[in-house]
């Protein structure tokens, strides 16, 4: 019951949070010193033509009216039309979101698989050589510019060794799109060749993206373990002769992970921000690359659409994290 009321509470807050996000996105788009009508009308347009465009898009109306219109459109799933492709933004986002989602999910998976065991080992052997080495690595993992790291990986594994493709998401024919996640679609289609290609393309960008996230996971898991390992419950289980591995990998790990799970939202934010750079370097057809292109072209409907989309995604992920947190820790659900 507690858990349900917690979820209901968070769901109610979901709506005002999104409205706030809309207001910020809208305000930012109007503060930018670029006249969107001028851009849309084209370089050689006359003053009259620009005025027409302005009226067509409703830019001549007062700002509050424009905002209400905007909220209404978004509520109806209408994010406007790209000023350059003349395609509805929603379509663009819908084709690109799965690519980013796939990349991010794999990056989270890599970060968790690497970060959690290393974090536990560091926490258990605090101030050992392993802990010191990993502290240096994690700090640099957070500090290193991801585009630089991405290009090092490309240079080594694609250009020098030729093991992995340089960029892109797929070679040959992509499988029938069902989920939009290339790996899943290839599995559904039973297309081994497409699956191998999808995975090979995925490795370098996912690793680049996972590096700072893994560093964060290591640090939080380590601190979680250190906070728990000297607790009376561990002393009790040791005195009662529970096997060490059961104490560590079952009981201590769950306690340590409550801290890490809280950070998953933060980690997801790191990944979304990283996706902008990583997708551009690896020519990955996702939201990040789309955002960069839209910004460079001052396609402001597309920028607003992207910002809103990632913002909503971030809020949604944090909702999931809260629910997961409450499920892990029965005391917190109040």
């Amino acid at each position: 019951m507690n858990w349900l009321s917690m979820v209901a509470n968070r769901l109610i807050w979901f709506v005002p949070t999104l409205l706030g996000l809309l207001a910020i996105v809208f305000t930012l788009s109007r503060v930018v010193p670029i006249d969107p009508a001028f851009l849309a009308a084209g370089e050689n347009a006359s003053v009259e033509q620009v005025q027409k465009v302005r009226e067509r898009f409703g830019f001549d109306k007062p700002l509050p009216v424009q905002f209400l219109n905007y909220v209404r459109d978004v509520a109806q799933g209408n994010f406007g039309v790209s000023m350059f492709t003349q395609q509805p933004i929603v379509n663009d986002l819908a084709t690109r979101l799965p690519a980013t989602l796939e990349l991010t999910l794999v990056a989270v998976l890599i970060a968790a698989l690497i970060g959690i065991p290393l974090g536990v080992l560091c926490g258990l052997h605090r101030n050992s050589w392993l802990d010191h080495v990993l502290r240096v690595v994690t700090v640099s993992g957070l500090a290193v510019a991801s585009f630089w790291f991405a290009m090092q990986l490309q240079f080594l594994f694609s250009m020098k060794l030729g093991w992995l493709p340089l960029s892109g998401r797929m070679e040959g024919f992509p499988p029938e799109p069902v989920t939009g996640l290339m790996v899943v679609d290839a599995l559904i289609a039973g297309d081994g060749e497409a699956l191998a290609s999808a995975l090979r393309h995925m490795i370098l960008p996912a690793v680049t993206l996972a590096l700072p996230a893994a560093a964060t996971v290591v640090r939080f898991t380590r601190n979680g373990v250190i906070g728990v390992i000297n607790s009376p419950s561990v002393a009790y289980q040791t005195a009662m002769g529970f096997p060490r591995r059961v104490i560590i990998w079952k009981y201590v790990l769950r306690m340590a992970l409550t801290a890490t799970v809280t950070q998953l939202g933060l980690i997801f934010g790191i990944l979304l921000a990283g996706a902008v750079v990583v997708e551009t370097v690896f020519d990955w057809p996702g939201l990040g690359a789309y955002a960069v292109r839209s910004i460079l072209q001052s396609d402001y409907n597309a920028v607003m659409g992207f910002t809103l989309c990632t913002g909503a995604l971030f809020v949604f992920i944090n909702l999931l994290v809260d629910m997961l947190q409450a499920a892990i820790d029965p005391r917190g659900a109040a």
Binding site: P232, S233, Y236, M240, Y251, M255
Partner: peptide, 16 residues
């Protein structure tokens, strides 16, 4: 040999 601890509040793992 088994053990009964001093603090029954903290000696359980709270998450299980």
């Amino acid at each position: 040999v088994t053990f009964v601890p001093q603090d029954p509040f903290a000696s359980f793992n709270p998450l299980f």
